[in-house]
Structures are given as C-alpha cells and as structure tokens.
C-alpha cells in the first residue's frame, strides 16, 4: 500500500513500500546471479580458440564465395519457382482447411463445446507446435522426396497458425450485427454469410498474406531434407563446398523473400 500517513500526519505516497522495494532489489540481484552463472557455463563449454579464429575463417569462406558464380543462375530458375509454388499452394491448402477448423474452435460459432471445440484446438496446437522442417522430414519418408512432400509440410504447419488467428478474429466480432441478421429470420448459413463473414474478411485476407510471406521463407530450407525447392541446390552446393554457388543461392533467396514481403505489405495496406 503506497499511500500512508507519516508521523507528522501528512499523507505520503511512493510507488513501492519497504517490502516491495526489497523484493524488487532481490529480483534484480537474482537475475544478475543467474546471468553470471549461465555466462560461466557457456564460456566453459566453448572452445575459445575457434571463436578467436572465427573472423579469419569467415573472411576465408567469404573470399571463396565471392564473386558468386553468376552462370549458375540458369540452374536456379526451376528450383526457386518450385519454392514459390510450395509456399503459395501450401498457404492455399492450409487456408481451405483452417477455415472450418477456426469456426469449430471459436467459442461463439462452435457446433459443440464438448466435442468439436477440443478437437479443433487439438488440431491447432499439434500442427502449430511442430516446425515445418520436421514435418518435411517426416513426409519425405512417407510420400517420398520432392515438391509434394514440401507442399504438404508447409500446409500442415500453416493450418494451426491460420486457424488460431482466424478463430480469434471470429471471437472478436460484434454480436449485435449477427443478432440483427438472425432477427430477420435468416438461416444459420445466411447468418454466417451476412453476419459473420463480412466482419472477419479483413482479418482473413491479412492472415493469408502474412502466412504466405512466412511460407516463402520456410519453403526455401525444405530442400535441405529433400522436400523440393531451392534448398535442394543449397544442400548439394554446401556438400561439395561450392561457395560461389552458395552465395548466389543466398542472393536469389533474398530477392524472393524481399519480393514476397513487398507484395504482402501492399496487399495488407490495400485491405486496411
């Protein structure tokens, strides 16, 4: 209680009382000790020789990687196109599956709180908690290596993400607009199309381009585990220590990501 009366009968105010002040100080002290212990532990387990050597090695690799091997670009057109397709189609499939899951998960639209909602939440949590690289690793062994495995990996990883954001948007809609449509005698589906969908459409579009943007970045690495796209070239170039090829691939990925960001920023700007 910061407000109290001192000996001369004056009301004084301070943000923390004495115990609060002590607790605050103790917490900072604790944080400092933990930081020190962690630092010591990391330091003990680090071979400092390699770290001192790092600038020289980095300069060495940089020197080998530059200039990029420009003529290699003819071999990158198809892989980067595959990567973009994985991201785009993966996002589309994810959205198609995320929409019904979001409606099942939202408190105000779920058909049953006992069965459908927990199921939907389970799907959301389980697809979200596994990284797409790990999904790809699994799927490469199931459906075989190639673009298809990457596509499925990206869509599964995106379902939970899209469904979660979308169901939060559904829960935030203005219920009186829904009530008004219901009061006209509209059916359940009409209430959905007139009362709910217009309210969540901006959120839906925002989620779609946001996820697409993320998926472009994620799909560039899927090739590392054999799931198609430009990551495949990256992997093989790294294996044969072809540094000029690696630097060119990184440059191509950078350009693709920048274009993706640009498009999604434009789309989001247009919606809001």
């Amino acid at each position: 209680m910061p407000s109290k009366i001192n000996s001369s009968g004056q009301k004084v105010w301070q943000v923390r009382d004495r115990n609060g002040q002590l607790l605050n100080w103790a917490l900072w002290m604790g944080a400092a000790i933990i930081f020190y212990i962690s630092w010591m532990k990391i330091s003990d387990q680090t071979t400092w020789f390699f770290v001192y050597d790092a600038p020289r090695i980095a300069a060495d690799i940089g020197g080998r990687a530059l200039p990029p091997k420009w003529e290699y670009i003819t071999k990158l057109g198809k892989p980067i196109w595959d990567t973009l397709n994985i991201a785009t189609l993966g996002t589309m499939f994810a959205l198609i599956m995320a929409v019904p899951i979001a409606f099942m998960a939202a408190q105000n639209t779920t058909p049953s709180k006992l069965f459908a909602r927990p199921l939907a939440l389970l799907i959301i949590v389980s697809t979200r908690s596994v990284n797409s690289l790990i999904w790809a690793l699994l799927l490469v062994s199931i459906v075989g290596p190639g673009v298809f495995a990457g596509l499925i990996a990206i869509s599964i990883r995106s379902i939970g993400f899209c469904a979660k954001l979308l169901y939060e948007a559904i829960e935030e809609i203005d219920e009186t607009q829904v009530e008004a449509i219901r009061a006209t005698g509209g059916s359940g589906w009409q209430v959905m199309v007139y009362g709910i969908v217009p309210q969540i459409l901006p959120a839906f579009a925002g989620i779609a381009v946001f996820r697409w943007d993320i998926n472009i970045r994620e799909s560039t690495v899927l090739g590392l585990v054999g799931a198609g796209g430009i990551g495949l070239q990256l992997q093989s170039s790294l294996n044969i220590l072809a540094w000029p090829q690696v630097s060119l691939i990184l440059a191509v990925i950078l350009v693709a990501v920048v274009i993706g960001e640009f498009v999604s920023a434009k789309v989001r700007g247009a919606i809001i």
Partner: peptide, 24 residues
C-alpha cells in the same frame, strides 16, 4: 427489429444491409 447501435453489418453496403431484411 430495430437496434440501439443500429446493428448494421458495417462492411456491407446500404443496399446489402436493407436486402438482408429479406433473408428469411
């Protein structure tokens, strides 16, 4: 039914809002 805060579907046009009265 007529509402206190109008309860129009904000992102639909005036015409769509009026025609929504025919949904039944």
């Amino acid at each position: 039914m007529i509402f206190q805060e109008y309860a129009l579907v904000e992102r639909l046009t005036v015409m769509e809002n009026i025609l929504s009265g025919r949904l039944g």
